[in-house]
């Protein structure tokens, strides 16, 4: 097996995730796209771990999973709060930061 086949697949997933983050209006869908990105990173970590015959790749993939869990937890809390306040989770309407 080539190393690149994993890396390219991961790159593809990453780019699909980026598209989702950029183009989706629904906040929950954006969170899902972020999961795609994180998974792409994890594939890279594990593939390089095997390539370098090092355990560090797997360990850091585990850390990324833990951080992803935290991210989804806090992210959904924020989304629910936004929904409660504005009765919509349409990200194009959340533009209070406009100057």
């Amino acid at each position: 097996m080539y190393l690149n086949q994993f890396l390219l697949l991961a790159a593809f997933l990453f780019c699909v995730g980026v598209y989702g983050v950029l183009a989706r209006k629904n906040a929950v869908l954006v969170l899902m796209s972020i999961e795609l990105i994180l998974n792409a990173v994890n594939i890279n970590l594990v593939a390089f771990g095997l390539f370098r015959e090092s355990v560090a790749g797997q360990v850091f993939a585990l850390f990324v999973i833990a951080v992803a869990a935290a991210e989804v937890g806090v992210g959904l809390a924020v989304v629910i709060l936004i929904y409660r306040n504005r009765h919509s989770i349409d990200l194009t309407e959340v533009d209070m930061m406009k100057g």
Binding site: M1, Y2, L3, N4, L7, L8, A11, F12, F14, C15, V16, V18, Y19, L22, A23, A47, L50, F51, E53
Partner: peptide, 26 residues
Amino acid sequence: AVVVSLLLLGVLGAVLADAYGSTKLP
């Protein structure tokens, strides 16, 4: 977004192909 993602994929693919073109997993 489609354009940006495709370009990003292109850049990533070029970099990967350049760096690990025919590297095999041990």
